[in-house]
Design a protein around this nucleic acid. Structure first.
Lengths: 204, 204, 204, 204
DNA sequence: AATGAATGAGAGTTCATTCAT
DNA sequence: GATGAATGAACTCTCATTCAT
């Protein structure tokens, strides 16, 4: 069971739950997954293990929720961008995609990095896949609506586009990200996607 | 200490070590990192824990070696392709890159997938980064030698190109890879890279 | 780290800690240092290993504490005697020393014997030395205050006097101590020390 | 079984056995009892574990033998002194005893210290007691033969005398022995014993 | 509702000992 | 006789989880 045991009914509970989520990220970031124990999380959150289990059936449920919220935020950001640029040109789409994705992933890079580790925990795979599928679907729909482009296999293109962005970001997060990278990367990814989208047209 | 404890002196030893490496992958693939314990690995290898520790100072050293061998193989394949296509055209390079990378990652996809998990283990990060840097350097050198292209920032382009390939492959491995994907993906990645390389020219 | 991990906050905890200390001595006495494992101690204490590690960072910390408490008790007894006989005669001092030392060492001889073994554990050496130094210093101060004696090298005399008592007691504890030994030994040691102290005077 | 499995029949064997004994002391001295493993001993001796087990039924047998030889040497030295001074005066006896004991214990102090640790290993207690009894018996016989003294309880006096020497030496070995201690200690112990022996006369 | 002491299965690791080569 | 790879029982220690207070 990886879902919250109950919904926080009171303000007190909500605060505790939020503190737990927050503490989980901190411990994860600061000490690594190995040392991210329930006791340590509770301590950092200013509560006790007992309280943790009041709201989550087990450790992984908490970690999963933290991960899911983060992925969901990314998904929402990208979906928002997709929605906003329906009917736009391929170039606009490329730019919007890169901007939305990076703004999520590169704010709080430590958090992003720490969660890569959690993501590997068994059980999370399915959830990640679900979120990813959702994002890719949104991208696909946007692509289909492009005012200046037609895509043979929009689902495939969306997948590759998303994968390309995710892979590049991952390298930068896992390596020692040079400082002023953010702006350059955004342009570079926009360029990559634009070129890719255009190349798809030539194919037709 | 993540390096092997002693070099196998006898034939029997070499067999044991190989069995251990092999078993590690199997257990990892079949049971996940959590259940990938020294005892289970040894058991699967048909030996005892003691033997494992005769050759590896600790569990992570074994896992690291398995991972490193795999990454090294990929690195070698890509480096080989880069070497073979020095002085070629940008299109050739794109195709060669995609072909080399995919042939490694998509043979034994289960193994690739399982090792993503290991890769997150602390201590491995540095090694991964090292291998990745090596590959990217090879790509960069190839790009610089292109007969029909000049790159403003070949290192950056190499990084993005590699990241794009890696990210796309990861999605497919972590999702439920549709069957005949391999050929299509190779073409798609070649297209992506080709378009990207060309776009870099336009920029100049 | 050989110091207790946390101070027992609840009454239950205090009981657990005391049970652990007690069990440690029992297991040590009954089974020897080799078989004095954390599991066995916890079992004998009627708790679980987990609880042991709640209060001690490792096995040696528990054993050390047990040893230290014992040595400290001896040290206190001897120091008390030294304090009580400041300004007294050499004979009184000799008698008091012998009485205090033996009363500690020979009550619970099994315990004394068992702890000799622990004392050899690395890390304990420093502590033993510290306690011993403390006792010897107390003896020295007493000697200096003797009403009927002057000592050339009171520190040296105190050391030899203490060593002589300790060595004699050790033989008796490690051999098969004849029954009514206690009284005779006390007289004998008092005689030994008295003679030694007097001989020191002759030297001047 | 703590006795050697077989007597070395050949020179080769004798050399190996000697190397093992020697290595055992070195490892013990250099690394402590914990790290004094059969493999390490064999390695240091320039042989293999297998060979170790050719000559000793188990690790403790080897360690025991090393300890016994050392204790035996001390015993012999003291016995020799006792024999040499039969019929002598109490003062001579005291001096001889102190000299013999210290010359053994303080040559190679590191070795003496390391063996204290071994001595605590179960099974050795009996052997130590045996050796000690032997020495004390020799002292007793000597005391009885004193030309200028009569002892009420020569066995008791011998025991206390031996204990006093042993205890004092132990303190110095386990503490940080000041350099030029040796000579002073010998005089001091001689003084202690002399005074004690004389005091025994007064008692009669 | 909150606490945190207690639990104990299970992990990594070591090392005395064996035995095929 | 010598070797050293293999063995596996036993150890220390961790941590998710429970439940009496």
């Amino acid at each position: 069971m990886l879902t919250p045991r109950k919904l926080p009914a009171q303000a007190r509970s909500a605060a505790t739950v939020e503190a737990l989520r927050c503490a989980a990220v901190q411990v994860l970031t600061g000490e690594g997954l190995d040392r991210c124990t329930t006791t340590r999380i509770a301590e950092r959150a200013g509560t006790s293990v007992g309280s943790l289990y009041q709201y989550y059936p087990n450790r992984d449920a908490l970690l999963s929720e933290v991960l899911e919220r983060r992925l969901d935020a990314t998904a929402c950001a990208v979906e928002g961008a997709c929605l906003a640029h329906r009917g736009g040109s391929a170039v606009e789409m490329a730019r919007a995609l890169a901007a939305a994705f990076l703004s999520m992933k590169l704010s709080e890079p430590e958090k992003s990095k720490a969660l890569y580790t959690v993501a590997q925990e068994l059980g999370a795979v399915a959830m990640i896949d679900r979120l990813r599928t959702r994002v890719i679907a949104a991208v696909e729909i946007m692509l289909v609506s492009a005012s200046d482009a037609r895509f043979d296999d929009p689902a495939g293109v969306a997948t590759v586009a998303f994968g390309a962005m995710a892979g590049t970001v991952r390298i930068l997060l896992e390596g020692q990200s040079p400082a002023q990278l953010e702006t350059r990367l955004e342009n570079e990814l926009a360029l990559l996607l634009t070129a890719y989208f255009r190349a798809q047209q030539a194919k037709c």
